[in-house]
Design a protein around this nucleic acid. Structure first.
Length: 842
RNA sequence: GCGGACGUGGCGAAAUCGGUAGACGCAGCGGACUUAAAAUCCGCCUUCCCCUGGAAAUGCGGGUUCAAGUCCCGCCGUCCGCACCA
């Protein structure tokens, strides 16, 4: 009998059943243990891509598994719906960003539903709707009141293509993260969130996130970039009258200082340039230098001697020359450094070039008199040539210098962070309006909460660049809520990263009248398992951590970290194909011919390139809709979980998805055999070996799913299926087949439901409990013992588990291949590891 | 340059505590069924050799150990992140 699974009919039918029964609705009032499983919500670009499918398949397995193991599961979905692409579409296609976005959402929702994810759709939200962003405005006002928001005239990163401001995090190698355009500096009045107020907390908090990948924690740590040191002022040597503040993480080396270097745009440099054309020219030259990694790597350390001198803080007669240097950055520390050539490689290179003194002030045991040559000494040791510091360790010396500086009033210990406050103003239409009003009399006034949401106007045009809100005829003109006089609205909108900084909270609780209900939120959060791409390791995850801390700081929530567990999945990759003329070809345009590929249309040979991330430009993309239409949801889901560990890249292959499809059908035939056996002959006996295999598999698959090792769970299921197929009919075999349906239920839910119903079960498998494990069956009663001679495997013996050491030794010596190698010799030493191996040393 | 991850068959990979390396899947090869194909089923599948067995093999070179993919030291390579960060 050939039974072929018909996914196209089954998928839709079971999806309708789950929908109708509201199977995956999360109950706030449940008394079960709770589990919040969340995947990063998508930007509604128009189509689901294969990376989404992988992401949501993983989360879905975990969510369904947790339901089966007795948890009340919250597994929601929503849309990160504000952003530039909607405005680009508006400009190109003359559609309103809202229309474009909402249509995309409808399409993508339909695509996701075809995959049968166990999502509580009743909690779906889109950040572009007033019932979401209105609450975000309320939170913004709360932060404003709590002093976590401020407005500052500042030099901003201006993206000339997108015509908007970018946060530091959004500038990569001097270019905008979206447009790739070279970023310019502009002075604008901007809104900032005080993320730096939590810099230390955000850093400390990383230590507790033991269920996060180390990589992500390290990246955040580096991004926050804490350093501890001394900030102090160098007094000028007359007639010059401006002091120079410097920052150093090595105040212990202060007696090794031989120059002071300042940035090209440092005020003192500007002052010097004012009446020194050579200095001015040098400054220009510095600014012209590139900022890319490659250019910086090779750029020569250049300096310009200003002729000025500064007084060493510990010795009024010790004068240090002041250089303008191209390697000093104005926007880190104070824009000026003390140069200690012996203990900083860059300072050493600089000193050699400009013939400045190099004196060792730190030495390892025995190196005290050794001169410094081409390599600065940055290791540990004790202070030398340093007057009152001599003999101290580095840390002691740092503390001593800081103490003296503070006592004498010329400097202070200071912690500096690389992290900057989060600039959130965007000169865009399609974002959350910043809910403030500018009044000539009253200044900046928050919009009263009763007037929220501040809704975006619908009648806007995108025919010219810039912010449509700013040029809207009426929207921005309002009366001041404070004095009643005419005033204007803020026309900047919030960075869309603000929208994604609290959506996971709103998923848990969605009251009409406030952003969330604290008690309900705290039932669900923090998120137990968050799954998404590593590309969000810094920006999104840092902002979300900040936002949660801000809410805690304001007394609105009782926890600091939003995500207890984080998992960053790998990308889906595909081979690339190139035609003879160098143009890229899509997988659909080529076919395999023998060992090579040819272009279907022309028959011309195709060169196969690297396996790379799917991208439109290389045309190596596979559309989820196409493959679902070809193989059904379950085969696609199964493939997404098979073979590659989830944190690694998954190469998409045609033969791989076909293999998954074959397995789905194999399972389906297997499920049909319960019935066949019931009608058939002898299905009455027990099969202890199969019982054991089954229980070991149930246990192993559960562990693997908990650890998100889906590839291993898949392999174990294959093994069980192989064993069941080979087994003779028995009660055990029927039990194994039934359990197999439960084991695959989280991964291939439509197939599992179909089989479940077919087996005569009345309820849904989605509501069925995970099969119980009999611990007695987890251990084998027979074990295979490796028999080694000198660590080399020579034979194996099969014995009852728990066989005594002496017996194992006797049996191993008697094993034919062992006896032959020993040839009558007596082993000098015998190592016996019970139930594992015997090693004979001769 | 700094930080992190990784390196195992033709390919994706497994090996939980230092204890039988290559489970499982893909591709490939051989066979059965079929008029034929598809589907399905059975078998083989790290390399080499003097093939009832043996040798080598987990990027390379050392070391520890009865025993190393796993631990230690030193290299090489790939990928990712950050970076004239004081």
């Amino acid at each position: 009998m050939q039974r072929r699974f018909n996914p196209f009919e089954a998928d839709a039918r079971w999806q309708a059943v789950w929908d109708e029964k509201q199977s995956f609705r999360a109950d706030d009032a449940s008394s079960k243990p709770r589990s919040y499983v969340l995947e990063m919500f998508p930007y509604p670009s128009g189509r689901i891509h294969i990376g989404h499918v992988r992401n949501y398949s993983m989360g879905d397995v975990l969510a369904r598994f947790r339901r089966m193991t007795g948890h009340e599961v919250l597994h929601p979905m929503g849309w990160d719906a504000f952003g530039m692409p909607a405005e680009n579409a508006a400009m190109e296609k003359k559609v309103h960003p809202g229309t474009w976005t909402r249509e995309n959402i409808a399409n993508m929702r339909a695509q996701l539903k075809k995959l049968g994810f166990a999502i509580d759709w009743s909690r779906e939200l889109a950040t572009c709707e007033p019932d979401y962003y209105g609450h975000e405005q309320a939170l913004f006002l709360d932060m404003l009141e709590a002093g976590l928001v401020y407005r500052k005239e500042s030099a901003v990163n201006w993206d000339p293509v997108d015509m908007t401001v970018l946060a530091n995090e959004q500038v990569i190698d001097g270019k905008g993260w979206r447009s790739g355009a070279t970023v310019e500096k502009r002075k604008l009045s901007q809104w900032f969130l005080k993320i730096t107020q939590f810099a230390d907390d955000l850093l400390e908090g990383l230590n507790g996130l033991d269920q996060w990948p180390d990589k992500v924690r390290t990246m955040q740590e580096n991004w926050i970039g804490k350093s501890v040191g001394l900030q102090f002022g160098f007094k000028p040597v007359a007639p010059f009258d401006q002091a120079i503040d410097v920052y150093s993480t090595r105040p212990d080396t202060i007696f090794g200082a031989s120059f002071v270097a300042i940035a090209a745009d440092h005020p003192v440099a500007q002052a010097v340039a004012a009446d020194n054309p050579q200095a001015a020219a040098f400054i220009e030259q510095c600014k012209a230098g590139g900022t890319t990694a490659a250019e910086l790597e090779t750029a020569e350390k250049l300096g310009f001697d200003t002729g000025l001198s500064m007084v060493h803080p510990f010795d009024p007669d010790w004068h240090l020359p002041v250089f303008i240097a191209n390697f000093v950055l104005m926007d880190y520390g104070t824009g000026a450094v003390m140069g200690v050539p012996a203990h900083d490689q860059r300072d050493l290179d600089f000193a050699r070039k400009y013939m400045l003194p190099v004196e060792r002030v730190v030495a390892a045991e025995g190196d005290e008199g050794k001169p410094i040559h081409d390599e600065a000494y940055v290791g540990s040791g004790r202070l030398v040539n340093s007057r009152f510091l001599d003999g101290l360790g580095i840390e002691e010396a740092k503390a001593a210098v800081i103490a003296r500086a503070e006592a004498d009033g010329w400097g202070a210990g200071k912690t500096v962070f690389r992290l900057r406050d989060w600039g959130v103003s965007r000169q865009r239409y399609w974002g959350t309006p910043i809910p403030v009003i500018h009044c000539e009399g009253c200044g900046v006034v928050g919009v009263p909460k009763a007037d929220l949401p501040v809704v975006l106007p619908e009648d806007v045009s995108f025919d010219i660049p810039g912010n449509p809100l700013d040029r809207h005829p009426t929207w921005k003109h309002v009366d001041c809520p404070s004095c009643g006089k005419p005033a204007v609205r803020e026309t900047d909108t919030l960075d869309t990263f603000a929208d994604s900084s609290w959506y996971f909270i709103r998923f848990a609780s969605q009251p009409q009248d406030k952003p969330f209900d604290r008690e309900t939120v705290e039932k669900w959060l923090p998120v137990g398992q968050y799954i998404g791409g590593v590309e969000h390791a810094i920006l999104h995850l840092l902002y979300a951590r900040f936002w949660t801390r801000a809410l805690q700081h304001m007394g609105q929530l009782g926890f600091a970290e939003p995500f207890t567990g984080l998992f960053t999945q790998g990308m889906v990759t595909h081979e690339t194909y190139k035609a003879g003329d160098g143009s890229w070809l899509s997988p659909g345009e080529v076919k395999k011919s023998g060992d090579d590929y040819v272009h279907i249309e022309s028959g011309a040979p195709v060169s196969v390139g690297r396996v790379e991330k799917m991208s439109k430009s290389k045309k190596n993309v596979v559309d989820p809709d196409d493959i679902i239409a070809q193989y059904g949801a379950d085969a696609v889901r199964w493939f997404m979980l098979s073979d590659s560990p989830p944190e690694r890249d998954l190469p998409w292959t045609e033969s791989g998805i076909e293999g998954s499809w074959r397995f789905v059908n194999r399972l389906w035939r297997l499920f049909g055999q319960i019935e066949a056996d019931a009608q058939g002959q002898d299905a009455s006996g027990q099969d202890r070996a199969l019982d054991r295999k089954l229980h070991q598999t149930i246990d192993g698959v559960a562990r693997d799913i908990e650890a998100l090792s889906f590839n291993k769970a898949v392999a174990k299921i294959y093994e069980l299926a192989n064993a069941v197929e080979k087994a003779a009919p028995s009660v055990s075999r029927n039990a194994a087949i039934r359990a197999l349906a439960l084991l695959v239920a989280p991964m291939t839910p439509h197939l599992a439901e179909e089989a479940w119903a077919d087996m005569g079960e009345t309820g849904l498998i989605a509501d069925a409990p995970w099969p119980p494990v009999d611990p007695a069956l987890l251990v084998d009663d027979e074990v295979t013992i490796a028999c080694q001679v000198m660590g080399k495997l020579r034979d194996t013996i099969t014995v009852p588990k728990g066989t005594a050491k002496e017996e194992l030794e006797r049996l191993a010596l008697a094993a034919p291949n062992v006896a032959r190698i020993l040839d009558g010799a007596t082993p000098k030493k015998v190592i016996v590891v019970p139930d594992r191996l015997v090693n004979l040393v001769i």
